[in-house]
Nucleic acid binder design. Structure first.
Lengths: 220, 220
DNA sequence: GGCTGAAATAACCAAATAGTTACTTACGAC
DNA sequence: GTCGTAAGTAACTATTTGGTTATTTCAGCC
């Protein structure tokens, strides 16, 4: 029961609203990434995203249209990141073996450093990758990457380091699959095998394991 | 505008309701499996499950308590299936190599024949495997399985077929990971690599690829 | 200095949705 | 037969939730 000074409509009580469209948009995107990754597309709540972003829900619709388009924007950013960082990889300089090691470490590090990526991609694949199918820009980047990898393998063959007939795309899928499944299903697996697969040393051992599998697979 | 014979409460129009608790329970479980697999835990709708099962929604709560417990029941059945079929595997008879081939084929076939499994396990891992952590029975089956696999590897070593130092659990995770990721993220990957990875011949090639990776990984 | 459009807010709404209530009906034990 | 219980139904509800309406406020431009 406030006693005094409570005028019906306080003249200038609230601090002036600082506007910052870019920052608002960015904060929404960050919050959406977090929450979509944690809860999935259907589990995520628009209100929760708005609260986490510290903005009014209306702004979310202002900037992104609707929930699905916001999810698409989150995914688009993720695809962008993957494509950019993959394209920036230099597999050419150095020996073929070191190129391959570099690729494995990049992939492993990427999913370790971007845990969001896994649940987001899972959500996307639950919906049969319908957002990716619309998105452009992917084909433009993926083709050069596949070519670069195949060239690395061919160079290894001609240098007598790698055997012939290794398919670049399949090798790449294998590398990603090995780290992705380990992290994606780590909770189940930890129960099954009765150890904590997210422990630092376990993860380090797994990285070594992937290197071994790849090395032995391509070895001449 | 019906003209006649429409008595206010038709005496025995509807055929007597045939009761069949076991069948009802089973139909609910089938429908729930389908829909949880297709939409995830949060995306699935209780009403849709009830409709698909052809039962009244109330029965779903009668038999399973609530949505989450129904999901747990679906998962429990899946874990049961995986455990039973894994335990039934005979890796002992025959050569170590053939035992390993048998294991790979079993895992690959299992996920090809049970596409539900992948999305259900993904949904479970999105929730940090909280249902599995409660479920008993797993540890009882998994330990013998791990032991069996390690024995297979040791036999291969003593027969001079396999190299020493291969970890059974890691090998198993690798095998599952290779097929699981391929199928789980096949939609994304198909866009990325601009081909249909769910095509029969692509899948056959992938199976061969997994065999090669495993063979080369354990080879002496 | 005032005008205009974008940025921001609060309150609201209709549809969807998990879960219930109150009731009826078949089945099997006795 | 009849009686208690579990199987089954229809209609309902409290809440959640994605999306909107109506309105205000700031920032930059002329």
């Amino acid at each position: 029961m406030p006693v005094q000074t409570a005028s019906k409509k306080p003249a200038k009580k609230n601090p002036p609203v600082r506007r910052n469209p870019d920052a608002s948009r960015e904060r929404i995107l960050r919050a959406a990434t977090d929450i979509f990754a944690a809860q999935g597309l259907d589990g995520a709540r628009v209100d929760e995203i708005a609260t986490r972003a510290g903005i009014n829900k209306r702004m979310l619709y202002h900037y992104f249209g609707n929930k699905d388009d916001l999810f698409a924007a989150v995914l688009d950013e993720l695809y962008e990141t993957i494509c950019t960082e993959s394209a920036a990889l230099d597999l050419v300089s150095g020996s073929p073996q070191s190129g391959l090691r570099k690729l494995v470490d990049f992939v492993v590090n990427f999913y370790l450093e971007n845990p969001h990526a896994i649940t987001l991609l899972n959500a996307e694949n639950l919906h049969k990758a319908r957002h990716l199918k619309i998105s452009e820009r992917i084909r433009a980047v993926q083709l050069p990457f596949e070519t670069m990898l195949n060239e690395l393998l061919m160079r290894g063959v001609s240098e007598g380091k790698f055997r012939d007939g290794v398919n670049g795309a399949r090798l790449y899928i294998s590398i990603v699959g090995l780290i992705y499944y380990y992290l994606s299903n780590g909770h189940s697996l930890s129960v099954f095998f009765d150890r904590d697969l997210f422990d630092r040393t376990e993860i380090a051992a797994w990285r070594t394991h992937i290197h071994q599998m790849v090395d032995r697979f391509v070895a001449a």
